[in-house]
C-alpha cells in the first residue's frame, strides 16, 4: 500500500511537469486560431445561382492560361515558360471543382488578391463580373470528377508551389525515372529535368519573395490543427505571408491532408497494427513477473 501512495506522488509530479512543458507552454508560445470549417464567411455568395451552361461558354477566357485536360484542353505553355510569364504555373482546372469551394472560386475569379488575401497574384482580376464568375464556378463544379485521388487534390491545390521530395514530387511534376549512362555515370535526362525545376524555382521565388518549403514531413513539423487553420487562412498564422488562401473545401482538404499524412507519417498504419501486440505481450510479461514476485516474497513477512 505504501508503494501505491509513493507511486501516486511520483505520478502527480510527473503529470504536473508534463502539463507545464507541453500543453501549457505550447498554449503560451503559439497563438491559438479557431478552425472555421472552410466556410470563408468573409466572402459573399453570388446573388443568383451559377449556370454551368453559361459558364462553359465563358471559360474560353481562361484557357489562354489554364489547361482543362478532362475536357481535352491542353495547357497553352509548359510549366517553366508559364512561370516565367506569370510567376507560377496556372493549374489545370479539371479538378478545381472537386477541391475548391464553389463560392471561393466565384470570388477568386472576380478578384484573386481579395479572395486569396495576398497583395498580388499572377492571375488577373476582373476576368468576369460576379454573375459570370458564379457561372464559371458552377461549370467547374459540374465537370469535376466525383472521386479524385489524395495526390491529385494536392497537385491541384498546392503542387505548383510546394515540392514533396520524399514522394519525388517537384513543382513541375513527378521526377521522371531516368537511367544514367553505364560507362560514364552521366544522366543527361536527369540533369535536364533538374535544370527545368531549378528555373521554375527561381521564377517562383521571384514571384513569392521566397521559395515555399518542401512539405514532405510538414504533418510532423506543424501538426493537424495548425495545418488546417493555416490553409484556411494563412494570414492568421503568418501575417503578411505570400502564400495565398487557396480556398479548399472540406472534402478537398481531407484529401490533401490524407496525402500529406501518407508521405509525412508513413508508419501510422503499422504503428496501429503492431502497438496492441507489443502492449499485450508486456501485459502478459507483467502477469508472469507478478506471479514470480509473489512466489519469491510469500514467506518473507
Amino acid at each position: 500500500m505504501k508503494d501505491l501512495k509513493i507511486l501516486g506522488v511520483v505520478v502527480f509530479f510527473t503529470l504536473v511537469t508534463y502539463w507545464g512543458v507541453e500543453p501549457y507552454a505550447h498554449s503560451v508560445m503559439h497563438k491559438h486560431v479557431e478552425f472555421e470549417g472552410f466556410k470563408y464567411k468573409d466572402l459573399k455568395a453570388p446573388a443568383k445561382k451559377g449556370d454551368p451552361a453559361k459558364g462553359k461558354v465563358a471559360i474560353a477566357a481562361c484557357v489562354s492560361c489554364h489547361g482543362i485536360k478532362s475536357q481535352g484542353i491542353k495547357a497553352p505553355m509548359d510549366a517553366v515558360s508559364a512561370s516565367a510569364a506569370y510567376g507560377v504555373n496556372p493549374p489545370d482546372l479539371s479538378n478545381a471543382g472537386a477541391v475548391l469551394d464553389e463560392k471561393f472560386i466565384a470570388n477568386f475569379i472576380v478578384s484573386p488578391t481579395h479572395a486569396g488575401l495576398v497583395k498580388k497574384s499572377g492571375m488577373p482580376a476582373g476576368m468576369a463580373d460576379a454573375q459570370g464568375a458564379a457561372d464559371i464556378a458552377a461549370y467547374l463544379k459540374s465537370i469535376a470528377p466525383k472521386e479524385i485521388k489524395p495526390k491529385e487534390a494536392f497537385e491541384f491545390a498546392c503542387g505548383r508551389c510546394h515540392a514533396v521530395r520524399y514522394d519525388k514530387w517537384t513543382q513541375i511534376g513527378q521526377t521522371p525515372k531516368t537511367k544514367a549512362d553505364i560507362k560514364t555515370g552521366v544522366d543527361l535526362k536527369k540533369m535536364e529535368f533538374d535544370k527545368k525545376v531549378g528555373q521554375y524555382k527561381l521564377n517562383l521565388a521571384k514571384y513569392l519573395g521566397k521559395l515555399p518549403p518542401d512539405l514532405s514531413i510538414i504533418v510532423r513539423a506543424r501538426g493537424e490543427h495548425y495545418l488546417k487553420t493555416f490553409v484556411e487562412n494563412p494570414q492568421n498564422l503568418l501575417h503578411g505571408t505570400a502564400m495565398p488562401r487557396v480556398g479548399v473545401s472540406n472534402e478537398g482538404y481531407e484529401k490533401i491532408y490524407k496525402y500529406l499524412e501518407k508521405v509525412g507519417d508513413p508508419s501510422k498504419p503499422k504503428r496501429e497494427k503492431v502497438g496492441p501486440i507489443v502492449l499485450l505481450y508486456f501485459v502478459g510479461f507483467a502477469f508472469l513477473a507478478y506471479m514470480w514476485y509473489k512466489s519469491q516474497w510469500k514467506d518473507l513477512h
Binding site: 513477473a289 507478478y290 514470480w292
Partner: peptide, 8 residues
C-alpha cells in the same frame, strides 16, 4: 523478482 515486476 520484484525488480522485474516493476520493470514490466
Amino acid at each position: 523478482s520484484k525488480d522485474v515486476f516493476v520493470m514490466s
